[in-house]
Design a protein around this nucleic acid. Structure first.
Lengths: 206, 206, 206, 206
DNA sequence: TATGAATGAGGGTTCATTCAT
DNA sequence: AATGAATGAACCCTCATTCAT
């Protein structure tokens, strides 16, 4: 997928990458704490380790930072998930492992995911659509895993889509609604029970 | 549950109620359009039909408006749900009706729910907890419906909790992730398929 | 001529007039000293006697101030000139008196005129055109004075236009190029000699 | 006349000249378009074909660029005018030719002259005076042309000064007030009529 | 109780200038 | 001699909140 380009005054590509990563790291930590709107560009610059002037050498607007953050989060999640998928051959076991890995990932990155969920709507249309596409990609990954792991399933495409979506948001929910869920479940319990019911939904007996 | 008190300079209780309802209505319409942070108090006052000075006679800070809005939204959802529950006697049919009603409600109020989800984090701690409690109440309502409709079920309390949570967020997801879901499903299809799988999860045959 | 409207948050028309006059006065004094670009909005506010916030209750952008200033200057010049014209009946004597009055006015307002000349180009297109129209009006006033004072002249319209323009800029030049002219001429001398040659140009013998 | 020195880090005199000419060319083109204040040093560097760092090897401040530009413009005008003067022997015809050439020059360079007029005030005192002296020189050239072409005139020195000044600004006015004048006159018409009245002023019959 | 003018801290962004390479 | 990344003071403007009427 075409990566949306954020313009930078600085020419040196490697430096841009380096500085932007500093920026993303700093920004995430601040957004976690106080959200996008309450974080100032000056704070982002400081947390990233450079001056406000330097910050603006690498982005055009504050929103660019948010976009960079969102993009980076999705990219990380996606890569991590692809890694898990690549490691195994399709099977029910693999399906369970992928889902488990996804849930664990969501636990690890719950802060980041939270940030994204709260702030995407602050992005301008184009950037928002780009991020949405990323999300679409992830649901598609889950969908394909289901399909390839259950080759003889007779689940309609629409239902696969629905189930993939359900898994997707159940994962996000873990972090997103942690105040409720994490009071009552440990991560493992949560995963186990969700997997248990997923098997039921997919009519897989064990 | 104790209602969190928002202080007002005006003594006349009825007037306070009236003005605040104007305010909530105006604010929701603005928050839908541009979010909490991008909406100014002046705009809220204007949309509500009174001056900025008057606005501040009925609230202390801009955040109070957000709280009032969140509170009002949950209250509406809760009341509407209670209405449906009150109409029937417990049974599988009732369970399905309640879930269906909940999904339909989420469809109707998707903008409002969206607003809430994006902005709760902007509330101060205490207000946030209050809203969270409201959410807890709603999950509990679903939980109780499941329990009362399936008196002989052998689902553990934890699992009931999990399933109630899943239903809860599947409803919100409909509005929250509309860009993905509403491209592929009509509301009825979505409800039907979710109900279909819910029955599987609950081991109810039809 | 339609007056270009500068929007204000404040409704009270009289107050708007009053505050804007404060603003114009403060701004002119600053623009004289350091020019438009080197003057900050905070300085304008302070010099006008109110806070930066208040300043922005009466204008939308810094450029609005410049426009207000330009508009005010032209308006003053125009009114003063009209006063002189209204006082007499058309005749060569009147023509000379009007030109003299115009030159004296330019002397009095040389700072203001200087400001205008240096900064009009900073105005946005629309505002610039408005100011240009004002200038056009003033040249037309001079033109009409020439025509009405010399009823039997056989000067073509184009030539009248040219002569009016020449008078117009000779007036501005007095202030605009004061470093050169005011070293060598006293105001009265300057006026006398310019009038002397104007008579020659118009073939008026005395 | 002593040329005001702008300091440069670079020692090689030829290189300094070359780079500064690049700079002047680039800067004029930018100043024409957006004025001095709205043009950034980065833009000047880019338009001149070198980096911002290099720009600052040849000047001390942004204002230096403006000075260089003003100086260059006057120098060009002066040289061009001297060329015309050198070509002929003093006579009424020469006077007319010089004035005509000056007006044509002002037409050609109207953008540049406009730039100068708007921005000289942004120069610091010393630089401003230097530029003013240049102007003085040009008026003196016109004055001398009048005197040498009309050897038996009985025009006082002061009046010659006045007339030279009038010619000078009538030329600038052509570009400076082009919105008004160039709507009504073609260049040739303008020159012809101004010359016609100049002859009258000088009591020259033809 | 209602109004709306006044306030000023603080936000995002720019850009002339420097300096290590 | 040339480069361009880094800097941060300073700019314009917004907006939640107050308070005199």
């Amino acid at each position: 997928m075409e990566r949306k380009k954020i313009l930078s005054n600085v020419k040196n590509r490697e430096l841009v990458m380096k500085r932007r990563n500093q920026m993303i790291k700093g920004a995430i930590s601040l957004f976690k704490e106080k959200g996008f709107h309450r974080t100032t560009t000056r704070e982002i610059a400081k947390e990233s380790g450079f001056s406000i002037g330097t910050l603006y050498e690498y982005i055009r607007t504050k929103e660019d930072v948010l976009f960079l953050v969102c993009d980076s989060i999705y990219e990380q999640v996606k890569q991590r998930l692809e890694l898990v998928i690549a490691k195994e051959v399709p099977s029910v076991k693999m399906l369970k492992n992928v889902v488990r890995a996804y849930f664990e990932l969501m636990d690890e990155m719950q802060e980041e995911v939270l940030v994204m969920y709260q702030e995407v709507k602050s992005l301008e249309k184009e950037a928002q659509e780009y991020v949405l596409k990323k999300e679409r990609e992830m649901v598609d990954m889950l969908k394909q895993v289901i399909e390839s792991c259950l080759p003889e399933h007779n689940i309609s495409d629409m239902d696969t889509e629905l189930i993939a979506n359900n898994i997707f948001i159940q994962g996000q929910m873990w972090g997103f609604r942690r105040w409720i869920l994490q009071k009552q479940f440990k991560l493992d319990e949560y995963i186990d029970r969700q997997l248990f019911y997923l098997m039921r939904v997919l009519l897989i007996e064990e």
